[in-house]
Design a protein around this nucleic acid. Structure first.
Length: 434
RNA sequence: GGAGAGGUGGCAGAGUGGUCGAUUGCGGCGGUCUUGAAAACCGCUUCGGGUUCACGCCCGACGGGGGUUCGAAUCCCUCCCUCUCCGCCA
């Protein structure tokens, strides 16, 4: 969340940054300031009363000690009324604070100065491209046809088991998925300096709130229940990304400065309800309720975060380069960024069978926005507790990578050629034609 | 799921209604002594909030929330978590 002090000191600057993200999002600010004022006035009042009460209580204690019970009783009588006033004021302060914080949680991060202004994906800026669209001597097939023909994914039976939007990988398909996960983890831990972690796949709501997925986007995630206990429904949620558990690993901690930077890498499945999302119901693997992803998370000192963002993008790109996949890096405009992000690069891979680019990675610097929400700090040299910057990036999403890979490397004979970097993991240089 | 024990400062561990934000030990930091180090001795060692130009002053926090009381780490209620034993189980 944003720093209340920043909003207090410079509300107009905050509002104009928020406006760049899209209409109406700055609207909470006046009310927040109002509530903040009410809270601070109340706090000053109630604390003066508490100070009074504390003094009186000590005096009563002293009187009791001297066995002056009648005097003590008289003082108690006087002080009783103070207690009632305090209770009432405390309540009012808590209510103002609760409403203020609820509004604060609904405000997205401010875009970084280097982010281009714009309202939609149209205004995103292409930064660079790698490789070229492959030329085919035949009409390239879509991954859906390739998966059917090579029996890599059984769409129909997945739907029978779990409904639409789920995948049943089979044979070479299952093996390819596993090989990709292994290759990506080895790359990021071995070459890029990340520490591998394997987190819980169900998390409490405080983790979703910590990274900014709650409370605004409640409807997008799967809540689970234990047995038929409706009471317990929603105490845990299936993770929409490894970012949710991994970025929260150090929540509510004060890290020694020497521990930074922290770089984590995690493979997990990701679960998304995708209520109302465009493209739900699309045939194939592009948008599904469950997919695999290898995620990168960094917790760094504020002064290093933008350099760390650039290197993170190159780490994700390396995956595509090793697999020989044409891609481009796009800088998202103010209107297209995620809620918690200050600056985001997307990496889009070319999928010849689709005739379009697919987003396989999104690398974001959330600055201190998430650290504030999860109260994660580090102790700086000067003894001050400061909020670190938290970055997340896909390195990369697997289902779409799978799509781009088989569509790009499909051969005239119906087989799929496997890039050299992956051959050791798949233990084959091709997926044979059926 | 059943029975029991427990959650206090970086760690260990006291404290069961009145200057207890908390005895003590360890660790850590600074200092004295020393050529240097060790030992010994002395001091410091949590976090949030309000207010102030600042020094400072004040309020809150002993797993979370609520209650009793003039006053709660301490009493009551409730939730969460950890440990031990039993049951079930990949």
């Amino acid at each position: 969340m944003l720093d209340i002090k920043q909003i207090r000191d410079n509300p107009e600057a905050v509002r104009s940054r928020l406006e760049l993200r899209g209409a109406g999002e700055g609207d909470g600010v006046p009310r927040i300031l109002e509530l903040d004022e009410i809270r601070r006035k109340g706090v000053a009042q109630v604390e003066a009363l508490k100070s009074q009460r504390n003094k009186a209580s000590k005096e009563i204690g002293a009187l009791m000690g001297q066995k002056k019970f009648e005097e003590a009783e008289a003082r108690k009588q006087e002080t009783r009324e103070l207690g009632d006033q305090i209770a009432a004021l405390d309540k009012a302060v808590a209510a103002a604070e609760l409403e203020r914080d609820a509004l604060l949680l609904g405000i997205p991060n401010l875009p970084h100065a280097s982010v281009p202004e714009g309202g939609s994906a149209e205004d995103n800026k292409e930064i660079r491209t790698w490789g070229e669209k492959p030329a085919f001597t035949f009409e390239p097939q879509s991954h859906v046809d390739l998966c059917d023909r090579l029996q890599l994914v059984d769409f129909a039976r997945a739907a029978k088991i779990s409904g639409s939007g789920f995948l049943l990988y089979t044979g070479w398909g299952a093996r390819l998925e596993r090989a990709l996960i292994q290759m990506l983890l080895d790359l990021h831990t071995g070459e890029h300096g990340y520490r591998e972690v394997s987190p819980p796949l169900m998390v409490g709501s405080q983790c979703l709130e910590g990274v900014g997925q709650f409370p605004k986007f409640r409807d997008q995630y799967y809540g689970v229940a234990e047995g038929d206990d409706r009471e317990k429904l929603g105490r845990l949620y299936l993770i929409p990304t490894a970012e949710t558990p991994v970025a929260n690993i150090h929540r509510e901690e004060i890290l020694p400065e020497s521990q930074l930077p922290i770089r984590y890498c995690a493979y997990t499945p990701c679960f998304r309800g995708e209520a109302g999302a465009a493209g739900v119901g699309t045939r194939g693997m592009i948008r599904v309720h469950q997919f695999d992803k290898v995620e990168l998370i960094k917790i760094v000192k504020p002064e290093h975060s933008y350099a760390e963002l650039e290197s993170m993008v190159t780490h994700a790109e390396k995956v595509l380069q090793l697999l020989g996949l044409h891609h481009r890096v796009v800088l998202l405009c103010t209107g297209d960024m995620g809620f918690a992000s200050a600056k985001t690069y997307d990496i889009e891979v070319w999928a010849p069978g689709q005739g379009s680019y697919l987003e396989v990675s999104s690398c974001s610097n959330c600055e201190d926005y998430q650290a504030r929400r999860m109260n994660l700090r580090f102790k700086a040299q000067d003894g001050q507790n400061r909020f670190p910057h938290i970055l997340n990036g896909s390195g990369t999403a697997l289902a779409r990578l799978f799509v781009a890979l088989i569509e790009t490397h499909q051969q005239p004979d119906g087989s799929v050629k496997i890039p050299e970097a992956l051959q050791g993991y798949l233990k084959s240089d091709r997926i044979p034609a059926a």
